[in-house]
Design a protein around this nucleic acid. Structure first.
Length: 278
DNA sequence: CCCCAGGGTAGGG
DNA sequence: CCCTACCATGGG
């Protein structure tokens, strides 16, 4: 990690340019669903069973009530701080479209999130919109997670969800995705799929495992592998990326980025989805 | 009323 | 292999 940290009372300060980690763009660009922006430079939410409250200026991020131990054990990896995004973005910027998307939101990084949380979240995401995905996940956490602060709930564990039936989660408003969540939990509880093992599999086997779950197709599978297992060669193609490919890459996405195309994908996704409103 | 959303399944050709 | 109707729900 090339960035300096210091403590200030109970808070921890990370010295990093906003162009290398923008907390709002990163936490609220559709890869995570549990953070809410408070204003332009402030955001809070829950990840890895911890409540995280951040503010930011051009050169520093303040992690409120955060120990150095938690930073080193959790947040350093969570924000992918050991990857050189300056080099990545330099390579990406040889491509004009990517260059535009990166200039639009250069502080996006891929979050290394909990694989079970990502699996459930992206099953919910199918043919759905981000606002509604967040609402459903919030309800799931409130119903089955632990309250770690006032009205702040952890994402439930497999154990906490092990007995759920379709009727139990009808209030989440998932529609037909009820069955998919139940099927997923049941396969994990039965150890038909062992989620920890997927991290050590090659891509072909990992995909084969995830595709056993109802409601997991190629796109959800790629999202789970990218956001939940940091398989950066996975390039999820949703409705927005379909538009990107149709509009800007009629001859296909450049193969030279194959091993990190998933990271490039996130800049393109965010650009395409939000450029009109900014 | 319409269309759309970080798509997938089942069923038919 | 490909194609497509259908799938609940809420936001715009």
């Amino acid at each position: 990690m090339n960035y300096k940290i210091k403590t200030k009372g109970n808070d921890l300060i990370l010295q990093i340019p906003k162009t290398e980690l923008n907390i709002i763009d990163t936490l609220d660009c559709g890869q995570a669903f549990r953070f809410k922006a408070i204003d332009e430079n402030e955001i809070a939410g829950i990840a890895f069973n911890k409540y995280l409250h951040l503010t930011q200026n051009e050169s520093e991020i303040t992690f409120y009530n955060t120990t150095e131990t938690d930073f080193e054990n959790i947040w350093c990896e969570f924000f992918d701080l050991n990857t050189d995004y300056i080099k990545l973005k330099k390579d990406f910027s040889k491509d004009e479209v990517l260059k535009t998307a990166i200039e639009y939101a250069s502080g996006i990084r891929i979050l290394k999130q909990d694989s079970f949380e990502i699996l459930i979240s992206f099953i919910i995401s199918q043919n759905n919109n981000i606002k509604r995905i967040k609402t459903s996940i919030d309800k799931l956490c409130k119903l089955y997670g632990n309250e770690i602060a006032t009205d702040c709930y952890t994402f439930p564990t497999i154990e906490q969800l092990k007995d759920i039936q379709k009727a139990d989660i009808s209030e989440l408003g998932l529609g037909y995705r009820d069955d998919y969540i139940v099927d997923c939990v049941q396969k994990l509880v039965a150890k038909e799929i062992i989620i920890e093992d997927i991290a050590n599999m090659d891509l072909v086997d990992a995909k084969k495992e995830l595709l056993k779950i109802k409601g997991v197709g190629p796109k959800v599978c790629d999202c789970v592998l990218l956001f939940g297992f940091y398989k950066t060669e996975c390039f999820p193609i949703d409705t927005w990326i379909k538009k990107v490919l149709a509009e800007y890459y009629p001859n296909g996405f450049p193969t030279e980025y194959n091993d990190v195309s998933g990271i490039a994908q996130q800049y393109l996704f965010h650009y395409m989805r939000t450029k009109q409103n900014k």
